[in-house]
Simulated scan of single mutants.
Amino acid sequence: MAESLLLPLVRGVAGKAADALVQTVTRMCGLEDDRETLERHLLAVQCKLANAEGRSQSNAYLRSWMEKLKAVAYEADDVLDDFQYEGLRREARIGKSTSRKVLSYVTYHSPLLFRFAMSRKLKSVLSKIKELVEEMKMFGLENSGNRQEPLHPWRETHSKLDESTDIFGRDDDKERVVKLLLDQQDQQKVQVLPIFGMGGLGKTTLAKMVYNDQEVQQHF
């Protein structure tokens, strides 16, 4: 059933909130407190979800609450993706000055504008999940009985994709994006290539694979 996918979704978003690169960017934007609060709320919800899924079969209100949580989790995932992408962009600018003109086309032109936009997005998500956490208290949900499973299995993360790691199911997508990027070499202006889709589909992973591609590295 669809509800069974909610726990791994929330666990994954909580892991992304704890990502080292996300922490760095939110700290630079003065949003670290909001990021920490979001992470704590996601972990608190994660502890209760196993019990919530079991009880949702006979509780329509609880099922509605879980649907709202799923929507907010996807929204949070997209916001955290933006922080990760901005971190990768800044790393690229520091490491490769020759690519600065290219990168300027695919991100906010002003760090101040980025900070303002992301502050609004993060606070909006935080407000929604705070409301859901308050509602959750009314259900009297028990914590997960599986004490051996770590609450944050993806706590230790890294901003860079290990080039030695095999990623299955993304090679065709990566090759298409790489071809689009390299085919622009004779154009005066660089075209923006958005990667969009619902949370958890691997948008950030695909972007990292393209960034680490040897042809892309040599070209840019």
Rank of each mutant, 00 (worst) to 15 (best):
A18Y: 03
V102I: 14
R115F: 07
L38C: 05
D172T: 12
K121A: 15
S124V: 09
M1P: 08
A207I: 06
L62T: 03
Q57A: 14
Y61V: 14
G145E: 11
E135M: 09
G95T: 06
K68F: 01
G200A: 05
G87K: 03
M1H: 12
E91Y: 05
D166S: 11
L126E: 06
V177I: 15
Y61I: 10
V45E: 07
L38N: 03
A60L: 10
S4N: 14
T165K: 14
Q84K: 09
L6F: 07
Q23C: 06
D213T: 08
H219M: 02
F196K: 00
E67H: 10
I94H: 13
E149W: 00
I94V: 14
L201K: 12
D78H: 10
T205F: 11
V190R: 11
I195M: 10
D186W: 12
E32H: 07
D172P: 03
V106G: 14
L88H: 05
L122M: 15
S97N: 10
R147S: 12
D82G: 09
F168M: 13
V10K: 02
R55T: 02
F220Y: 15
L206T: 03
W65A: 10
R93L: 05
T26L: 02
D183Q: 14
E3N: 11
K208Q: 15
P111D: 08
F114M: 11
G140L: 07
Q214Y: 04
R63A: 13
D33G: 06
E163R: 12
Q187T: 09
L161T: 00
R100V: 13
Y108F: 13
H158Y: 14
E131M: 05
K101M: 08
A50M: 02
L141P: 01
L31M: 10
T37R: 15
M138N: 15
R35M: 03
A44C: 07
K160Y: 05
V13T: 12
D82A: 13
R120W: 08
Q46M: 01
F139R: 08
V72Q: 07
S124D: 13
A20K: 11
S56I: 01
V133M: 09
A18S: 09
T24H: 07
S127R: 12
M198K: 12
T157R: 04
K203F: 07
A92P: 02
K130M: 06
N146H: 08
S127W: 10
A60V: 12
M28T: 06
V79C: 11
D19K: 01
M198P: 04
S124C: 14
A73Q: 04
M66Q: 05
D171K: 14
L113M: 11
D81Y: 02
S119I: 00
Q191W: 00
